[in-house]
């Protein structure tokens, strides 16, 4: 009875995570700006993946150290990656100064 209930909850969590994945990845195909896509992707990817892992955790609690490690690294890395991509893709205004390009030699 209890195990059936837990397996139902975990299946529901995984399905919810999959819905998040597809819902957040879909705007990637469109013609929107990079930051819009990055926002929807980082929210849905991180949340969806975490929901899937929690679902797996309920299904097999025996492997909890592994799955908790995955949960933590997912939360940290995906957030940092979002920041890094946004920072690197937007050029800083001084990039267009020509004098920066000259390398002094000889």
């Amino acid at each position: 009875m209890i195990t059936g209930f837990i397996s139902l909850i975990s299946s529901g969590l995984i399905a919810l995570g999959l819905v998040f994945w597809i819902w957040g990845t879909w705007p990637l195909v469109g013609d929107r700006s990079l930051l819009f896509k990055l926002h929807s992707l980082s929210v849905s990817d991180t949340l969806g993946s975490m929901l899937i892992i929690v679902g797996l955790l309920l299904k097999i609690p025996r492997e909890w150290p592994l799955l908790v490690l995955a949960l933590i690294s997912l939360a940290i890395w995906n957030t940092v990656l979002g920041y890094v991509l946004a920072y690197c893709s937007t050029p800083s205004p001084r990039n267009f100064r020509g004098s920066q390009e000259v390398r002094h030699r000889g």
Binding site: L18, W21, I22, T25, W26, L28, V29, L34, K37, L38, L41, D45, S49, L74, N78, L81, L85, C88, S89
Partner: peptide, 29 residues
């Protein structure tokens, strides 16, 4: 199915940062 969306995006978009975004999504997935 969810994995095929960013693969398609990486194939059809010519902007390198959009490709990077698709790469990040594929790596997580």
């Amino acid at each position: 199915i969810a994995l095929c969306i960013p693969i398609y995006e990486a194939w059809q978009d010519e902007d390198i940062w959009q490709k990077m975004l698709a790469f990040g999504s594929i790596a997580t997935k």
